Amino acid sequence: MARPPRYDTSLLLDAAVRLAAEGGPAAVTMAAVAKAVGAPSGSVYHRFPSRSALMAEVWLRTVERFQEGYVAVLTASGDPGQAAVAASRHVVAWSRTHREETALLLHGPEAFGRGAWSPEQAERADAGNRRLFGRIAALAAELGARHPAQTERVALALVDLPLALVRRHVRGGGLLPAHAEQLAADSTALLLSDL
């Protein structure tokens, strides 16, 4: 029976997340990941044939984890207003408990070499985004958005507003204040109150 690999993919991706959170995407190199886990560089190349493949996978795993929880919150309530407020709150709560991943995501996929990803990796990213923004569009319709300005208001309330709150604190190196979830929820509810 073959023994399990000592340096599995999750361990390597966890190290890449830490490196990106501390030093930005440029800090994520094959050698740096290997050093972070005490592995020979061959262990990293065995799982990721190139730095581009590594960068894609660290981005995709992180964004997919966020999107999974976010979409679950968007679909959990039968009341679209409650779902919208819960989604805004979720962005802040997830960011609070996943500080390194949040710091990574705030760089955006382009900083992780999106243009050099394989077609399969690019399609994974696109499929996740289609699912997420499709659900937001459906929620906007459920909320009564009929015009582009109303749909834009829903996107602002569910995406831009909570991200701006998170970005200001995370990029500044500080902690999210205790009232951040409530502030996001209240602001979202207010923006959507006249749809």
Rank of each mutant, 00 (worst) to 15 (best):
R18N: 14
A34D: 13
R124P: 02
Y45K: 11
E142P: 00
E100F: 08
T62P: 11
V92D: 10
S193C: 03
R18W: 04
A84G: 00
V17Q: 07
K35F: 12
L19H: 04
G172S: 09
S43G: 10
V63P: 09
T29F: 13
S10M: 13
G78M: 01
V17H: 04
V37T: 02
R99M: 05
P119R: 08
R99P: 05
R47T: 04
L54S: 10
A34Q: 12
R99H: 08
E101W: 01
A178E: 11
R96F: 01
H90A: 12
P119G: 09
T75K: 14
P177T: 03
W59N: 13
F112R: 15
V85M: 02
N129I: 15
N129G: 15
R130T: 11
A2N: 13
R146G: 14
P162V: 01
N129C: 14
L183M: 13
N129S: 15
I136K: 10
G173L: 07
T9D: 11
L161D: 03
G42S: 15
H98V: 01
A111P: 11
G115E: 13
L161P: 01
L19S: 13
V92Q: 12
A39M: 07
A184W: 00
G78K: 05
T75D: 11
A32E: 06
L143N: 08
H46S: 08
A21W: 09
A178C: 03
E110G: 14
E100P: 03
A26E: 11
L176C: 06
Q150V: 10
V71H: 06
R114V: 07
F133P: 12
A76P: 15
F66Q: 05
G144T: 12
R3V: 15
P177A: 05
A2Y: 06
A184E: 02
A180R: 03
G172D: 06
D194R: 08
L163K: 13
A93N: 05
R96K: 06
M55R: 12
H98I: 02
Q150M: 12
L163C: 11
G81F: 03
W117T: 05
G108R: 10
A16D: 09
L104W: 02
W59G: 12
F66C: 06
A84R: 07
E142Y: 00
T97K: 05
A34W: 04
L132P: 00
V154T: 07
I136S: 10
Q67D: 10
A157Q: 00
E101V: 07
A137S: 15
R65D: 08
A127R: 13
A53G: 05
E101S: 08
L143V: 04
A127F: 09
G38V: 04
V44K: 13
A39K: 03
L74S: 07
G69H: 00
F66R: 07
A27C: 05
A32G: 06
G38H: 02
S41M: 13
L158K: 04
V71Q: 04
V71T: 09
L11P: 12
L156T: 12
P177F: 02
L13F: 00
P25Y: 09
G78W: 00
